[in-house]
């Protein structure tokens, strides 16, 4: 008997493609452009094929390109993206997709390390390319990681304290009512992890070309893009599972799950197109101020409900 959770990476990739399409489309509409078209008349087929699967076409294109490896790069340059992709794929197994996932009594801890590992492997691959822009991007990414992961940890553990478990399956529910502070803290740190607009500092293209991925191209960049698309799904699905999930099963579970994913995706898409980019010192200061405060409040709220009342 094969567990249905083994299908999670495939589902994650396909929904991730649709989510990236959604992000593109929303930012295009906010910028008063058309963006990738949803439907095209048949007679336009030779002119323009950019449609819903445009992110997939981009990845296929990258995989058909030649990979250029700088002469100064170390073997970690190749290992970094592949390990990052592996982390992302493994992370999908622990995030419930419509309630289906592998579950252990400490799956939140495993998921946390997988999510952090993905970022660390990208940093490792980037800085071993010996590009100066990658090094600066790495410094920015690591600064951002410190400021961002603490609210993430505190926010998720606030739920863990409330439900007295470390299993994601047992934590799931419409917890945004139970602990709104935790929901806010986790949402903000998800936005930072995905490099959504005010926080796309590590890959700021006008400042440090493309940050960590400056030297990547071809198949390795395709691997990185795949990992990024899976991460978009994993983080959004994690938020939906933890805060917007209504316990159900079968087709209804899928409806609720997808509705939650789309709602969160739309929210993130609007954020992405409505902000300028922070400077790194502004971003870390802001992250240490507001999300940290919110997450400490979340822990306090959880402890209050669990132990005092």
């Amino acid at each position: 008997m094969i567990d249905a959770a083994w299908l999670n990476p495939v589902i994650a990739f396909s929904i991730g493609i649709l989510l990236s399409f959604k992000l593109r489309k929303i930012s295009a509409r906010v910028q008063s452009r058309r963006g990738p078209l949803i439907w095209l008349p048949d007679r336009w087929h030779d002119i323009n094929r950019s449609k819903v699967l445009q992110p997939l076409y981009d990845i296929i294109k990258l995989f058909s390109k030649q990979t250029i490896i700088p002469s100064t790069a170390t073997p970690f340059f190749i290992a970094g993206p592949i390990l990052a992709l592996m982390c992302a794929v493994l992370a999908t197994l622990f995030v419930p997709v419509a309630g289906i996932s592998f579950d252990y009594s400490f799956s939140l801890v495993v998921l946390f390390y997988l999510l952090m590992g993905e970022i660390l492997f990208i940093i490792m691959g980037g800085i071993s390319s010996a590009s100066l822009f990658s090094a600066i991007g790495g410094v920015r990414e690591i600064d951002l990681m410190l400021a961002n992961e603490i609210p993430f940890i505190l926010g998720t553990f606030a739920l863990a304290i409330t439900f007295d478990t470390l299993s994601i399956q047992q934590m799931m529910g419409f917890n945004i009512l139970i602990n709104p502070f935790a929901a806010l803290a986790v949402l903000l740190s998800i936005i930072v992890k995905l490099h959504i607009k005010p926080f796309d500092i590590p890959e700021a293209d006008t400042e440090i070309v493309n940050g960590l991925t400056t030297e990547y191209g071809g198949k390795l960049l395709g691997v990185l893009e795949t990992a990024r698309i899976i991460m978009v799904f994993v983080l959004i699905a994690l938020f939906v599972d933890l805060f917007l999930w209504i316990p159900s099963s079968g087709a209804l579970a899928w409806v609720i799950f997808l509705a939650g994913v789309i709602a969160t995706g739309v929210l993130i898409g609007f954020m992405n197109s409505l902000f300028a980019r922070f400077r790194i010192d502004q971003a870390t200061r802001w992250l240490f101020k507001i999300p940290l405060l919110v997450s400490v409040l979340a822990i306090g709220w959880a402890v209050l409900w669990r132990y005092v009342l």
Partner: peptide, 27 residues
Amino acid sequence: IIFFLFAELASLVSFYIFFSVIIPSLF
């Protein structure tokens, strides 16, 4: 739970210190 919370924070911060020491040495 609190034990894992502290363990995660400790590992996060040690990763941070590790990388923020290493990357400037690559400049």
